[in-house]
Design a protein around this nucleic acid. Structure first.
Lengths: 187, 187
DNA sequence: CGCGCGATTGAGTAATTTCAAATCTAGTGG
DNA sequence: CCACTAGATTTGAAATTACTCAATCGCGCG
C-alpha cells in the first residue's frame, strides 16, 4: 500500500529504498468510513492527508448553513485545511468522506522534518504546491469566466470519474449553483 | 533597489551577502510604462516577475472579448502566467501595467538554478507557493460563498490600498460582476 | 469651451434562487 | 414478488438578482 505513495512521489523525484523507508516512518495510516470527518470545523488540524483510496470533500459552511465544496480529493491527492494546518490554528473548513477511505497522515512537524532531512522532498512539495496553485487559479478563472453550464461541462471533461462517484447535490455545491439549477442545465 | 528583494526574501529565510549577490546576478531589471504588457496572450512567457514598484494586472480575455482579472500584483508580489511559465508554453493570460512599474525578471532556468544552488531559496519558494495556494483557495471560497457586495467589502478590508489605485471598472473585472452592478452596490 | 474617460442611472431582459411539491431509485423486510 | 421508506432528483412558479444596452453625468485637461 505504501507503494502507492512511492509511485506518486517518484513521478517527480527519484528515491532510494532508505529514503523511502524514512519517509514512511513519518506517516501514520488511518481508515475512515463514509460520512466520517477527518477534519471538523473549529477543531485543530493535526495532519495533511495523502489519499490512498476513497473520496473526500473539503467543505466550508457559510453563515446561512449552506455547504460549499472547495475541493474533492481522490486517490493520490493531498488534502487538508491548509491555512489551519500551516499556521496551527483551528479549522474553518471540514474534511469528510464521501466514500470509505484510507489515508496517510503527515503532521506539520514531520512535514518539516521531511523537507529538512530530504531536500528532494522539499523539491517534491514545491512542485506539488505550484501545481496546486495553478489548479486553483484555473478554478478561479472558471468561476469568473464561465456560467454554471460551462463549468459543469468543463468539470465533466476534467474529472469524468467524479460523475460516477458523487451526487449531483455535491457537484452543485462544488460548482457554485443550487442543485435545482444544476438539474435544469443538462437539457 | 535590490534591498527590496532582500528584505522580502529575508522575511522568510536568512541570507549571507554572498548568497544575495548570487541571487541578484540571476535577475534582470526592467521598467514598464502604464498600459504596457509584460506578458501578451499567445506569446512565450520568459519570466516570472518580482514587482519592485508599480501595479500590474493578470488578465484573461474570454471568447466574447470580456476581460477578467485573475489577480492584481503590487509591490513585493510575484507574478506571471505560471501555467505557461512552468511548462514553457504560450501564454493564455496577459500581464499588463496599471501604473508605471519596475520589476525584477527571473527566467525559468535561473529559477531552477536558484532552487538548486541555494536550498534556502527552494524553502522560500515553497513557502511562497503555499501562501499563494492558500490565497487562491480563499478567493475560490469567496466566489462560492459571497455575493458581489460581500466580495467587494472583503476586498476593501483585505487590500484598502487598491481602491486608491484602481478604477471601479477594474475592480468589477476582478470581483466577477459588471461595472454597472458594482456601481449600484454601494448605496 | 469641448473632448474623453470613467462612473452612474434607467429600463427591459435573462439567469438563478427559493420554496414547495412531485417523481424516481435503491435497499429493506414481509 | 411486492410494498414501503429514505434519499436524491426533478419540476413548477414566483421572487430576486444580475446583465445588457443606452443615455446621462462629472471631472480633468488641452
Amino acid at each position: 500500500m505504501q507503494e502507492k505513495l512511492r509511485n506518486h512521489i517518484e513521478q517527480i523525484v527519484r528515491l532510494t529504498n532508505d529514503e523511502f523507508s524514512f519517509i514512511c516512518s513519518l506517516f501514520t495510516t488511518k481508515e475512515y468510513k463514509k460520512n466520517q470527518f477527518l477534519i471538523h470545523e473549529g477543531e485543530s488540524v493535526m495532519y495533511a492527508y495523502f489519499v490512498v483510496s476513497g473520496l473526500l470533500k473539503l467543505t466550508y459552511t457559510d453563515g446561512t448553513g449552506k455547504e460549499h465544496i472547495i475541493s474533492f480529493a481522490m486517490e493520490d491527492w493531498w488534502e487538508s485545511d491548509f491555512p489551519a494546518y500551516f499556521t496551527q490554528t483551528k479549522a474553518t473548513m471540514s474534511l469528510q468522506c464521501l466514500e470509505d477511505a484510507t489515508v496517510f497522515c503527515l503532521s506539520l512537524e514531520n512535514y518539516q522534518k521531511l523537507c529538512f532531512d530530504i531536500p528532494k522532498m522539499e523539491s517534491f512539495f514545491l512542485k506539488k504546491s505550484n501545481l496546486g496553485f495553478i489548479g486553483s487559479q484555473r478554478r478561479i478563472l472558471s468561476l469568473l469566466t464561465n456560467n454554471a453550464k460551462e463549468r459543469y461541462e468543463q468539470l465533466l471533461i476534467l474529472y469524468p470519474a467524479l460523475f460516477q462517484r458523487v451526487s449531483k447535490t455535491q457537484l452543485a455545491a462544488y460548482l457554485g449553483v443550487s442543485r435545482e439549477t444544476l438539474s435544469r442545465l443538462y437539457s
